[in-house]
Design a protein around this nucleic acid. Structure first.
Lengths: 248, 248
DNA sequence: CGGGATGTTGAGGCAAGTCAATCTAAGTGG
DNA sequence: CCACTTAGATTGACTTGCCTCAACATCCCG
């Protein structure tokens, strides 16, 4: 089932997500126990980690790279429900349930893989961690509410502005211009996430460039030139805050 | 802050949601502890339980009636993120965070109210319950994914068909025709949930009636006359399953 | 019975979809 | 190193599903 190109023991002590993600809610001792349960895996770009409706018996913590989650409707249309990156959690803890979405890497990807049953047991034995995960899940519900507002009530330019601002607060590296956004995904994926066509994304990018709201360096990165106007478009009173995600 | 018209001690032993909802995951002893933490409250129809961005220090279990959750965008548009009924949980467990949505009753409403801090502590002391809540939260994330697909990728008739089928699986009474759906909410609320206008809902209802897919008894209840065709429209392979919701 | 809230229907406009042509970037192999 | 290929992005012309605005109908509750 997995297309992992590599499988090694992780070393949590040097893991880049140990201070974020779920791991930050564990004691040193707990982290050692978790480490014993986990395997590191690596995926190439554009590999399917699991397919919608497939049984999946792993939960993943993403340590590097990015994943898209999507469902293909019977009518052939695709909705990308979210993108996950470093520190985010991928996979349901529910036993013997088919995956709700397809998960596919959009970059080279490193994950920390737990067997679902063991991970669930661990959660049930460590209520503080379970509670932390519950808080994360509730954050994710709120994020999905925001996305419903975007899909249900915003026009294409408003959607793209909101998306760019959200991206600008995620997966940010300290040493870089805070208004430089690496989208990593192609136009088509942005479109499938925002509920429009790639042509509309393309036209909206062109409009934004004409209005000097953004400048594109290449097709995978954008420089935000007028954040206040973008916020106004997006309907954000202030800059959106970043939080870890759970994806199912 | 509350507009409760009544506040009495609950009696969990006779509560109609004791076998569903979170309570079904508790032992008799735990339920007794929880009961000591809870107060029963009653709200009239169309009362705001809490407003978006307000601090809320309660978590509610709905025992009777229905609630709508919505956010009003700066541009005046409204998106209803969900409806909650008997057995569903209302409210975030996060401390000192403003409510993400406005919660408003659409029928007379009975709830079981817990002080947020006490409820959170209880969860952290009872990992089985915390885990059950986590599973519910993940179910809710999946439900929100489905709604994103609806909002992002479905046409108005497909949205309405999906909505009617979902309703037909929720809050069902055993003694009634399984294809008789009580919507309870006005056209405008359906529209704000499905990301269209009330006019479009009205036209689509008319079309469905003309095509003999449904029959309306009054403006608050619908009889499904052709479930297979509705499923096909909705893009459901099979009848959607019902599960408890968490609303924030 | 009356009047406000809610629902229905119609006409016209517009944002975004569809289809198709072109342009660009990134490989690939001779 | 350059022609060739291919996937992705852009742009334009046309179509369409839904919104907007407005008139009218109906329901409901005092």
């Amino acid at each position: 089932m997995f297309c992992a190109t590599d499988t090694v023991r992780p070393d949590c002590r040097h893991c880049i997500v140990r201070h974020i993600s779920l791991c930050s809610h564990t004691s040193t001792r707990e982290r050692a126990e978790l480490q014993a349960l986990s395997k590191r895996r690596r995926f190439d770009r554009s590999q399917v980690i699991y397919n919608q409706d497939d049984p999946v018996d792993n939960v993943f913590v993403i340590t590097r790279g990015m994943v898209k989650l999507y469902r293909d409707a019977p009518n052939g249309k695709r909705q990308i429900t979210g993108f996950l990156g470093s520190g985010d959690i991928l996979g349901s803890i529910k036993y013997r349930a088919g995956a709700h979405c397809t998960a596919e890497s959009i970059t080279e990807l490193d994950v920390c893989a737990f067997q679902k049953e063991l991970f669930s047991e661990f959660l049930q034995d460590h209520s503080a961690l379970c509670f932390a995960m519950l808080v994360m899940a509730m954050d994710e519900i709120e994020a999905q509410y925001d996305h419903s507002i975007l899909l249900g009530r915003k026009l294409a330019p408003e959607r793209l502005a909101a998306f760019l601002l959200l991206l600008s607060r995620r997966w940010k590296r300290d040493d870089e211009d805070p208004d430089l956004v690496y989208t990593l995904m192609p136009r088509n994926d942005i479109a499938d996430h925002l509920g429009v066509t790639s042509e509309t994304i393309s036209r909206t990018f062109t409009r934004f460039k004409a209005e000097a709201l953004i400048r594109t360096l290449d097709n995978k990165s954008v420089l935000l030139k007028n954040v206040p106007r973008l916020q106004q478009l997006a309907g954000f009173e202030e800059m959106p805050s970043h939080r870890m995600s759970i994806g199912l």
